[in-house]
Design a binder for these strands. Structure first.
Length: 589
RNA sequence: GGCCCAGUAGUUCAGUUGGUUAGAAUGCCAGCCUGUCACGCUGGAGGUCGACGGUUCGAGCCCGUUCUGGGUCGCCA
């Protein structure tokens, strides 16, 4: 740095400093040259302060100040002076004072930046990502990463106070079957062999329980080579934890206290404990989602029993084929949604594979519905009665396979809430979703797959059903949901080898296959395994919720685009011939 | 892999039915200006209309392909 040692941060200066000689450093936000008087707004992480250069000080200083441009890095020394009454700017936190410059050093010049360093910029995301270092200078972005730092600190403090140890697990690990695609890393010293970057530290943390660490946590990067979304990055951060000698209530109790602490210290928001619990079954039936947003109503109602013998074939056939008929009553929407908008909602549910969206408009002029003519009057009345319909409401109905009916109406529920602005944005509704199914049937592979992962324990009262009715077995698994976002999930794991083998059997693995895939874990389990369970939070999603963005790129310092590339570094890029030869790799593109 | 949207000065955008020299705002450069804080005034520079191909007397505009970015479904145990 230059000859002037910094004494204060820009944003800290105020009336208390009036009369002091200070030195500040930072980037030039803006200059205003009035001819005989030059104002320079200087910005650092703490805020912006106005420096003023008067022609009367020295000619050299004034000439130098006139050459200063935006984003130059300066060191400025002078006296803090109180602004005249008429010159006060109440919009700036430092607007009651200014710095009368005595000395000025241009530490570094800057080219004209391609994006403005301002909070309300509307530059394209492409440019922001290419010039991420400039984008990150914006105060809103700096605030996000201050929040992110705070959350990580609160988590570490809390975990430490509760007896947890942070242990690092490897980034170069073994590729795991089932689950997402792995990012692979070639081994040079073992030609033809590959490491995988971890999708999660799952198996290592379970082994740490075998090792007697008792309570483990880690704030850790995880990698999944799947297609991106607005809320999904190929590398992301988990708050990962595991505990020994606990049942699911212990894990849930600890984690809701953790979240309570984070919300208190970061947002000064009070979360009431205990967090409400809802079974998976109830969540699906009432909200069509395993991560329901409970800040508003619009709940789903089942009308299958009313229309299962209906002459309307669409409904009767759906029930006969094991499907569901679900309805939402959009209260008071009759005069809020035009016919065109209703049709667009029909297109909307098709995104989720629904074949169609039936509706009954209970308008003031009478019942309008394309399906009314197929229904008997008592069927129509029973439907209206079931959903509590009254004049002015519109009832939306989907008849489809259970998955499609839940999915499409669950999403329609969210879409209606957005369009009708039913969501109270000041609320943070936490919810535990529990009793997830242990298994999910994969139609393509014609076998059961683990809904959570193969080491998730079934509920004690359902173990007997493993032989007779695997599909209805519930797991000791739990997700924590906030405003419709899955913040984290976990489970109690299997620590009994007979049960574990039965589980592998259900998943269609032979003993040999299971040992081939997970041998190191099964081997470890032979040497004394405590009952254990844990949970992992998506840190990025927590930060999104805390900072009020729905774009994960806003909470990651150097994020990837939809094609998983970094616009700043241009990664990924081709490797040169020498590197590939050393790794014994040939590419075919 | 499917569907949808966008790409024009440094930046954000406009650009009519396909028609002469592609505009605005802002930023940038220069000059003037001692209380600005979105400073003001005057002047100036700044364009491979994402790329390639086609239709046409003529394409920013129409057609095809492709690239890049965004959203989403599948996918993400």
């Amino acid at each position: 740095m230059g000859k002037y040692k910094r004494t204060h941060m820009c944003g800290q200066l105020g009336l208390a400093n009036v009369g002091e000689a200070v030195s500040v450093t930072g980037w030039v936000q803006r200059t205003r040259d009035l001819g005989g008087l030059i104002f320079i707004q200087l910005r650092d992480r703490s805020g912006i302060v106005q420096a003023v250069v008067n022609k009367d000080v020295t000619e050299e200083l004034f000439e130098l100040a006139g050459k200063v441009r935006g984003e130059y890095v300066l060191a400025v020394s002078g006296e803090v002076i109180k602004r005249a009454e008429s010159a006060i700017n109440p919009k700036m936190s430092t607007g009651y004072i200014e710095l009368a410059v005595k000395e000025l050093e241009v530490i570094s010049k800057a080219e004209t930046p391609p994006i403005y360093i301002e909070d309300d910029l509307n530059a394209s995301e492409t440019l922001r990502l290419k010039y991420r270092y400039l984008d990150l200078r914006r105060p809103v972005m700096q605030k996000v990463f201050i929040t992110r730092h705070k959350v990580a600190k609160v988590v570490r403090d809390f975990m430490d106070e509760n007896g947890f140890l942070e242990v690092e697990t490897p980034m170069l690990t073994k590729t795991t079957p089932e689950g997402a695609r792995d990012y692979l890393v070639p081994s040079r010293v073992q030609p033809g062999n590959f490491f995988a970057l971890p999708q999660s530290p799952q198996l290592f943390k379970q082994i740490l329980m075998v090792s007697g660490f008792d309570k483990y946590f880690q704030i850790v990067k995880c990698f999944r080579d799947e297609d991106l979304r607005a809320d999904r990055q190929p590398e992301f951060t988990q708050i990962d934890l595991e505990m020994s000698f606990v049942d699911k209530e212990d894990v849930m109790e600890l984690n809701e206290r953790l979240l309570q602490r984070v919300f208190k210290e970061v947002l000064d928001y009070d979360i009431q404990l205990p967090v409400p619990k809802m079974t998976y079954k109830e969540a699906m039936e009432r909200y069509g989602s395993d991560k329901p947003d409970t800040r508003f109503g619009l709940e789903l109602k089942d009308i299958g029993d009313i229309v299962k013998t209906s002459e309307f074939k669409v409904f009767a056939d759906t029930i006969a084929n094991g499907g569901l008929i679900k309805a939402i009553n959009a209260e008071g929407c009759s005069d809020k949604l035009s016919r065109k908008e209703i049709d667009s909602l029909g297109e909307f549910v098709k995104t989720y594979r629904a074949k169609g969206l039936a509706w009954i408009n209970l308008s003031a002029e009478g019942v309008k519905s394309p399906i009314a003519k197929f229904l008997k009057e008592e069927e129509l009345n029973a439907i209206i009665d079931r959903v509590g319909g009254k004049t002015g409401d519109i009832i939306f109905i989907v008849a489809d396979s259970p998955k499609v009916a839940y999915d499409s109406l669950g999403q329609l529920r969210l879409e209606l809430a957005r369009r009708l602005e039913l969501i109270d944005k000041s609320k943070y509704n936490l919810l535990w979703v529990t009793e997830f199914p242990l298994l999910d049937y994969d139609e393509e592979e014609n076998r059961y797959v683990a809904m959570h992962h193969p080491f998730t324990s079934p509920m004690d009262e359902d173990i007997q059903l493993l032989d007779t009715d695997p599909k209805s077995v519930r797991a000791k698994a739990y997700d924590i949901v906030l405003n419709g976002y899955e913040l984290g999930g976990g489970s109690i794991r299997i620590h009994n080898s007979e049960l574990q083998e039965k589980m592998f059997g259900l998943l269609g693995f032979s003993k040999e296959q299971a040992w081939g895939k997970f041998g190191f874990l099964l081997e470890a389990f032979k040497y004394g395994t405590p009952p254990h369970g844990g949970l992992a939070f998506g840190l990025d999603r927590i930060i999104m919720l805390l900072t009020g963005t729905d774009n994960i790129k806003d909470v990651v310092a150097f994020p990837k685009t939809q094609t998983a590339s970094c616009l700043m570094t241009n990664a990924p890029s081709p490797a040169d011939e020498k590197q590939l030869n050393e790794l014994n790799i040939k590419t075919t593109v």
